[in-house]
Amino acid sequence: MAAALVAVVAGALLAAFSGGVRVWARARSWDEAYVQALLGLEQVERDVRNVTVTRLDRFDGDEAHLAIPSVVRIPGKAGTEEWPGIIRYEAGAGTRTLACHALPRGSEDGASVSVVMSAVDEVRFAFCEPARGSGAGNWVSAWSGRTNLPAAVKVRVKLGGSRGPREMERILVLPIQ
């Protein structure tokens, strides 16, 4: 009787223990790459929407990269300085990352690079032509223009990671035309 009781208690404890380990492991690997990708897409969307129409640089992109004329903030002698420049997104070669390069004009020392997504198997950009008349604009695989901007940018991300492959797609509409 006593032995059976001990066996039941031990079994319950073991089940609780293994269950706890599983939950912990799940919490640790809780879509780390997915959450980072969500935050990264939020950053890409903000930068696409903040595109500056400027005589200095072109909005330029193809399937593998995106260069957005923008205002780049860098640390200066008296606080943050703003420079016209380029925000460039591209997949890091051989690193399975999406990198963001901030390239201010006139202050080459202020150039910086940061990783916005990791565990990235593929990133693809596409560009929507502005609609003419009642017809919808076509999606094209490359864009280059100083004052003629696309109506929207499509970002497709394929993620690897411990939770298996996942695909995310976001259409980012440009507020200015």
Binding site: T52, R55, P84, R105, T147
Partner: peptide, 18 residues
């Protein structure tokens, strides 16, 4: 380069410091 399209282009005019 023609008309300014953004006020931040002023940053590149020589003598116009931050």
């Amino acid at each position: 380069r023609g008309p300014f399209l953004s006020i931040h282009e002023l940053r590149l005019v020589e003598g116009l410091n931050p």
